[in-house]
Design a protein around this nucleic acid. Structure first.
Lengths: 199, 199, 199, 199
DNA sequence: TTTTAAACGAGACGGTACGTCCTGTCTTGCT
DNA sequence: AGCAAGACAGGACGTACCGTCTCGTTTAAAA
């Protein structure tokens, strides 16, 4: 029913869980989210699409958001895994651009938005979302600024947290609230304003 | 949204719906949202709390989000219905503070967040939310800047849309994503940065 | 919306009910019973078909069976309103034949069967059905035998009630239970057996 | 109707339905029919009384009449499962008495009457009622007469169907239509008349 | 001729039960 | 031991009618 990867040849029975089932569930959840939207995503539907029993899902995940969180954790790290630029401006422009693309143009971004939405409805989801998604992302957002402080391009007393809010806030606002596109022109302008106000 | 003629308080028959039932439903929905959260909000629960038949709800609203949209439309207008200040800085500080309070401290703000969340799950909700909530709010956000242009405090070629994104984006980001508080110090800093970068 | 019979020109207002509405309801109920069956017969459906408000029905009738009882009372009398024969055998054969045709081939018979069915479900209907339909019919069934006793064709001590049960019982049994047709051959055989056993 | 293997008492999973749930539903339906009457018998009520989910009922039965038909099939067979007498008269008297008691004095008879009533309202019920209840019962009614023909007590050309109609018809007529009691005196008289007319 | 009150059409109301869908738990037999 | 399968109790969904109610119109008897 689903592909059984070579490196998982001993799974699904006496010793350990089935990696094949795990991957089939993650992929089915991602696919169905994009196809149907979060509201129409059901455990039963994921099980049917993955060719997996409901019980197998409940054995390893607690809810549909739990599945999405797992799939997101992997994808987000991959997306932002990149080398730094030497110049602070270039560094920030690349990072914000990458963030904008992630949120508005990738399947993982769709998962991100869905989870952010569900976090508004369910405090348990909100807590996990903050711990597992928002804070790690915040860490990644902070990196360019910390690098600049270390290199002396920014003073040591720079208010980094406020800077992050000002740099990424408008991007999330567009993606989540106004649903406008977030072109490079827009993210570049945010960087220009930030650097300009500092001189 | 609905005319409420004084002489028509006691309807529910041939010529019009029951205003009492309408208000009971809106209030019950608001209350239950705050008490239980959006995920546990059900039409049956609203009907029971409001002392109303389910059919009466379905006669006038298509879903629980439809009810919340109606209640929000009224409350949002009321919250931001305020006089302007003479000074652009004071005007902006007051407006952003009001926005922050609305989103993080009022029941209507909880409704706003829940709807923003649901908009991530359902494109129909997203469309109505944009048209009936986001755009009118955007209009209100634009007002202080337009007043400043008219009075000459800002140049005519100021990029108003970008300014709004920079001013309110971080506030929505905190309310929706990081769920940090949004103190006056934070909104004031946003205004300072905006005005400072302009000099 | 409905025909207004000439003899009802003064109704529907200050003093007295609308004969037009009454007839429209009775006819709609009969029609819909035959079209849809008793189970799908609803007060709302009757009101819509008759072009009458629900309230008008509830003003004058207590239920759909109440409507059918009224319509049946008229039709049954009409159907059996007939002259007697001189000979007991011919009298009985004509009467049983008439009963069989009524139950199995007329619209009023369909109403009769529906009410008999509902009488199994609702003791209030059963009581009215017995008083207003079964007993009057029993009276009509008795008439040929009483005439025969009076004319001397039957002895005065004849067990009339048992005779009726034996004569009409098999006809109702076929109409209600086995749903077989009830041809003249069958009713004639019942009469032959009854008269034959008496010799 | 359903096999009940001894070794499968505890099902409700992959390989079969829950026998416990099935019996609970049948018993609840019977009880509630007698307590409340057919009109007030609801699927929700049966589910609640049986401690069963509505879905479990809908999984195995299509309607409340479907449940009653299943329960009746068992009970009717049990009630008439009896040894034959040697004498035709005694055989018939015993059988008619048994039929009268069934219809007028047993819970299963109440179910029988309710289904006969519903058969007047719904042709699908009528079809199943005839096939699963009336025809099997007719078979049982026929047995005494066939035994008599075989033993030579009745001639080979006896009109058995007509005889059945005349023997049982009046009993059903009393039970369904006039709702009079059906004492042994009455059923014995039917037998006497039948045998007497044959001499 | 005007007033006026009963019956009317329309249809919104609080309810009940419907039949469907999905939840999360469970039991079974296979691998 | 993990799995696919699927029956289970539970509960919300959105729909259809129930019987009640209030509205504004119609109409003929009373004033």
């Amino acid at each position: 029913m689903y592909a059984r990867p070579v490196e998982a040849r001993h799974r699904g029975n006496r010793h350990g869980r089935s990696e094949a089932a795990r991957l089939a569930v993650l992929e089915a959840a991602d696919d169905l989210l994009v196809e149907l939207g979060f509201a129409s995503l059901t455990i039963e539907g994921i099980a049917a699409r993955a060719g997996v029993a409901k019980q197998t899902i409940y054995r390893w995940w607690s809810s549909k958001t739990d599945i999405l969180l797992e799939s997101l954790a992997v994808d987000a790290v991959e997306h932002f895994d990149t080398a730094a630029h030497e110049d602070l401006g270039a560094d920030l422009r690349a990072h914000l651009r990458r963030l904008a693309v992630f949120l508005t143009e990738t399947d993982a971004g769709a998962v991100w938005l869905a989870l952010a939405g569900q976090a508004q409805h369910d405090t348990a989801v909100a807590a996990r979302f903050e711990a597992e998604v928002v804070l790690p992302q915040r860490e990644r957002d902070r990196a360019p600024l910390l690098r600049a402080i270390e290199s002396g391009a920014l003073p040591g007393n720079e208010d980094v947290e406020l800077a992050i809010d000002q740099l990424v806030g408008p991007i999330y606002y567009r993606a989540l609230v106004t649903r406008q596109p977030v072109p490079a022109r827009f993210t570049d302008a945010l960087v220009s304003h930030y650097l300009g106000a500092r001189t």
